[in-house]
Design a protein around this nucleic acid. Structure first.
Lengths: 342, 342
DNA sequence: CTGAAAGCGCTAACAA
DNA sequence: TTGTTAGCGCTTTCAG
């Protein structure tokens, strides 16, 4: 019944009648050990259910802990979940484990998480920076050799490696696809906050596509939302304008859900849609959803790979890796633009 | 340029001209400290960028680490992502951080992860057990006071708390819904491996619903798949039978994706569908997808809550918490059964 | 091949 | 209010 203490090296040593160091040697395959000793030690380890205390080991060895600290906005978001999985798979063979937290895009929570991870002496720190967060405090750690990687968005106050999607080009291509099918009034439904890097980049891509086609930028066609529900409402508002858009561009996967749900609810199939970021069942919708797909897996992989390179001592200057997006035309972008020239 | 050693308590103490213990006192708000000393210490801490080494602290204090070890099949699966997020949110105010790994339903990987977590002296261990994994080795840890929780499925060789969905009842209700709409040939598309707990439970629910309606069980209507692609193929095969099903029941979210994608690809709207587990955009499909929704959030919350209770010393016997599922009829379950009585 | 002593960074338990 | 000593569980260093 007593919650007995976990066995230690010393306990094992005592059981065998040998010194702690000898047990350590056997377990770490350090130095030599007679076959007999080895067997006895292993037996005692099994008998006592001994598991070395990794924290104690790390303390003594002095090196960083074999963990990678990862801060993302939300594990429940399939995009970031996929990124996390790719990172995990890439670092696993190096023996690194994931220490993870959701910031909910709150700079305070992000900071609490990074501080926590630093205090745990992670080997690598990867962050999807929140709007309003400052990363100057990470500078000294980076200089001391800690690989710090910004994911999906650039950080503030620290020049370090970052891996982002080709947001601007991707958005441009998606909007250009709509324009190519005759649309001139194209709504943009973006993320919040307005200062969010990805939102700004994608809006910039949207604008550049309009510019190319000499379509004037109309602020009333730009709406914002922060979750699926508000995206649905924003969609309804856009379509209620006196001179409504004939096509919509979704700034991310959540916005896409909102647009699609709202159009389905009101049974409107006449609105063309292109979404940034692929979503499940896009091909089963009617019409099937055309998207500018991000490559979550490659994004995670690239981040993990460059982090491992840094861990191995590469000291070249900060790199920015851009993961290409891909336009997948499935139909929704080709809804005819009514009255284009009627 | 030199990767200078991270500052330690002693460094701070030296800087101020005070003992290490005093610095420790100030930082942990342990014992008293003069205002002047406190200020100096805080200043030095800021100046040196000192961050206490949590591992060293934990070693000395002897308690478990403020982390919760979580093993799930795949972070990229939205269902498990949502569960993870709920756990995280529930334990955050207690200061616990997530140490997470994807097992890919591989018992060896699951074991490697749990061992890793145990070596890190996590405060709580939560596992979604893989088929083929044995958990006898966790017994001693549980007896020593470590809260161990099985999530989504029961574990083998260890009686401990577990939190599962009402798989059997949920599946029964979903299939009964199809039967109520006149269907008698209902296909079941389940997960792999066949021994998977959730699959077996849901199949049992399927069978019980058939029994109730005195519909004979037809093995040829039961198919299996392990990802969306194979689910699509299995769907095609089921519908190619000489006496094909008029309705399909999806055993989980991935199977649902496969069924819906395949029906969309072949433009078949005459097949009724009910899926276990809700998926994004279910309401935007045509017909909208009827589902037996699991409550991922409540599942995670319940698991975290009971774990915290254990952490606080509750020693009552192992509990099984069943999170109810909910039938959400959206239309796809009500496709008419052709020739029911023609 | 094995052990004893020292010490990683921190805090508990006593002093002063 | 502060410092000293010891020790957490492990490994390094140096002797046997």
């Amino acid at each position: 019944m007593a919650a007995s203490r976990r066995p230690t090296l010393a306990d094992v040593a005592r059981e065998v009648g040998v010194s702690a160091k000898t047990v350590s040697r056997v377990l770490n395959e350090d130095g030599p050990a007679s076959a007999r000793t080895r067997e006895q030690v292993l037996a005692a380890v099994a008998k006592l259910g001994f598991q070395p205390n990794l924290m104690a080991r790390n303390i003594r060895v002095g090196g960083p802990d074999a963990t990678i600290g990862l801060v993302i906005p939300d594990v429940a978001n399939p995009f970031f979940g996929a990124v996390a999985r790719a990172i995990e798979d890439t670092v696993r063979e190096r023996g690194l484990t994931l220490l993870m937290g959701s910031s909910a895009d709150d700079p305070a929570r992000e900071r609490a998480l990074t501080d926590q991870f630093l205090a745990r002496r992670v080997s690598i720190l990867m962050v999807v920076p929140s709007v309003g967060a400052d990363h100057t405090h990470l500078k000294s750690h980076r200089e001391a050799g800690l690989p710090v990687i910004f994911l999906d968005r650039p950080g503030v106050g620290l020049s370090t490696d970052r891996v982002v999607s080709s947001n601007r080009v991707g958005a441009h291509d998606g909007v250009a696809h709509l324009i190519a099918h005759g649309h001139r009034r194209i709504g943009f439904l973006g993320d919040l906050p307005l200062k969010l890097y990805t939102r700004r980049e994608r809006l910039a891509g949207y604008r550049s596509a309009l510019d190319e086609a000499t379509i004037p930028y109309d602020r009333s066609l730009v709406a914002n939302a922060h979750d699926q529900q508000s995206a649905e409402a924003a969609t309804a508002q856009l379509l209620d304008l006196a001179d409504p858009p004939t096509a919509l561009f979704a700034g991310n996967n959540i916005m896409a859900l909102g647009i699609v749900a709202e159009l389905a609810r009101t049974k409107r199939k006449d609105v063309a849609v292109v979404a940034f970021d692929d979503i499940a069942l896009a091909e089963a919708l009617e019409p099937a959803l055309t998207v500018v797909a991000q490559n979550a897996q490659e994004l995670g992989e690239a981040a993990a790979t460059i982090a491992l390179t840094r861990l191995d001592g590469t000291r070249t200057r900060a790199r920015t890796i851009t993961i290409p997006t891909r336009l997948i035309a499935r139909g929704s972008g080709e809804q005819p633009a009514p009255g284009t020239n009627a």
